[in-house]
């Protein structure tokens, strides 16, 4: 069972601001899902390599050639707030 403190830690890592109710709900549901996932412990995976990619691809590269840049207006067309050429954000510290 996930404690509220654990749920809060995960929420902070996820940058999610949860209400107490949500914390309880997610805590419950995550605990259940993780409990269900415990069935993986039945598997002996000692010698099994992990599969991060299903296709056996390797060494995919591009050449070092400059392509097109976005025009400034397109680069910034979705900016929630801007200041001239810059994206603007609230104070960082």
């Amino acid at each position: 069972m996930l404690t509220i403190a654990e749920v809060e830690h995960v929420a902070l890592l996820s940058r999610l601001d949860l209400s107490l109710e949500e914390k309880k709900l997610y805590g419950d549901q995550l605990s259940k899902i993780l409990e269900y996932a415990k069935m993986l412990d039945e598997l002996d995976t000692g010698d099994v390599p992990p599969t991060a990619h299903v296709l056996p691809l390797k060494n995919v590269y591009r050449e070092d050639r400059v392509g097109e840049h976005l025009p400034l207006e397109k680069a910034m067309q979705n900016a929630p707030e801007r200041d001239g050429n810059f994206f603007k954000v609230p104070r960082i510290v």
Binding site: R62, D64, R65, V66, G67, E68, H69, L70, L72, A75, M76, G84, N85, F86, F87
Partner: peptide, 25 residues
Amino acid sequence: NTKIFCPSGTGFGGDPNTHVCPVCL
């Protein structure tokens, strides 16, 4: 000449947000 994962240029200086493409943005 270009960035590590996209074809935007790496030149030092330049107006802000003009050496960008969808990938590095």
